[in-house]
């Protein structure tokens, strides 16, 4: 898996992993410190509750620790950790009854292109305001669509990596992303019709 612009000091990570496996608690603490901010950023795409975010990140690190001896060094530590964190979040969503793999809509069926186009965010708008609107729209989407959008648009994951993490084919990733973007646009224009552009 390749997560763009997310590969700091892989050699250091490997050293810290080996030291952790040798029983050095401080080395594992350094690994946690190194990636905790990204893990918090990832978790907050799925819940706004600070306690839940902290619990999810802690759970992900504890799971990573118990599986540290299975880390193959074929990918970066962050990529490996990211996969564990994502699966932790998916499990948590299932336990909460918010199944990420069920949807009333068939993700394979592609929607007809909308006649109304969406405008790019206004250059005059505050970036924080744009972010607020984007996240509010994301929250309205079914989990199945929010996941792929987070992985692709925020984490910049390649289709193959998304497929690996979710256990689906690349074709399903493509069609799910297609639908997810269409849903995002539909909800954005529903909540903020002022951003619509007629053809």
């Amino acid at each position: 898996m390749e997560l763009r612009a997310m590969e700091p000091q892989p050699a250091d990570d490997l050293c810290l992993v080996q030291e952790t496996l040798a029983g050095h608690q401080a080395s594992f603490q350094l690994l946690v410190e190194r990636y905790q901010s990204r893990m918090f950023a990832l978790a907050r795409h799925y819940t706004k509750n600070p306690v839940e975010i902290e619990d999810l990140v802690q759970e992900a690190f504890l799971k990573a620790f118990t599986r540290l001896d299975t880390f193959q060094h074929q990918s970066s530590f962050y990529t490996w950790l990211y996969r564990i964190a994502t699966n932790t979040i998916l499990d948590w969503m299932k336990r909460r009854g918010r199944s990420p793999v069920t949807s009333v809509e068939d993700p394979e069926v592609l929607p007809e292109p909308s006649k109304v186009k969406v405008a790019a965010p206004d250059a005059q708008m505050e970036r924080a305001e744009i972010a607020k609107i984007t996240h509010a729209v994301l929250e309205h989407l079914p989990d199945i669509f929010r996941q792929v959008l987070v992985m692709r648009e925020f984490e910049e994951m390649a289709y193959q990596d998304i497929a690996d993490v979710l256990g689906i084919s690349i074709g399903t990733v493509e069609s799910r992303l297609f639908r997810a973007r269409a849903k995002f646009k539909e909800k954005l224009l529903q909540l903020h019709p002022e951003f619509g552009q007629d053809e």
């Binding site: 901010s37 918090f40 950023a41 907050r44 975010i53 969406v118 790019a120 965010p121 970036r127 924080a128 744009i130 972010a131 609107i133 984007t134 996240h135 959008l149 648009e153 925020f154 973007r181 995002f184 646009k185 954005l188």
Partner: peptide, 15 residues
């Protein structure tokens, strides 16, 4: 559409 995500991503205050 992608522009919305790009701006949102860069505007995110670290948690």
């Amino acid at each position: 559409l992608a522009r919305w995500f790009q701006v949102a991503k860069t505007a995110e205050a670290p948690l």
